[in-house]
Amino acid sequence: MSPEMLRLILQATGDTLTMVAIAAGLGTLFGLPLGVFLATSGRGELLAAPWLNRVLGTVVNATRSTPFIILVVAIIPFTRLIAGTSIGTAAACVPLTVAATPFIARLVEGAIREVDGGLVEAARAFGASPLQIVLKVLIPEALPGIVLGLTLAVVSLLGFSAMVGAVGGGGLGDLGIRYGYQRFMPEMMLAVVVVLIVLVQAVQTLGDRLARRLNKRLRHG
């Protein structure tokens, strides 16, 4: 493998990690509250707002049912508004975040809904406000589930980030397509796939380990 190839791979890996990290970070920033709200705003629930719940639920579903590659193209005007351009790694973060947010929201919602309703009742019984219940009961209790969800989201984002090459996003996917496929460099394709496999393994292992450490529901010695 030539030093040039190595440089390209390192560069692309850095781009991919940057995009995934920004999208996962922003996606969590927006998706976590959204997920908590979706899980607690149904009829008769803690922050009951059934109408808003239904509207947000529909928006989330619409975003999630749009194929990512179409989403990337469809929101180009929005991307340009936010990033100033629709091309490049920074611009690619916009559609990635837009895709990650509802995905993370649904995963967070699922984790929050797993929390035993008895805990909410106990917290209400000792005088906790809805916000206190969210912050001190629901999120801490759902944390192992949320961490596993975020792990899944990061792995998915690694896959999505390969597609933003289509709009000049850079990263490993772009490298694999341009060098590995279009320039007939199978060794580049292989290297890209190997790096991605290693990244996914690392993310999943870290996520699993963290979730297990946070989960106090199991007895450990």
């Binding site: 035993d116 008895g118 106990a122 019984a125 000792f126 005088g127 801490p140 209790e141 944390l143 946070l214």
Partner: peptide, 18 residues
Amino acid sequence: ERRGIGMIFQHFNLLSAR
């Protein structure tokens, strides 16, 4: 007012993370 009214439950309802 609820701070002046304690409650205990059949299934304890303790936070597993604490």
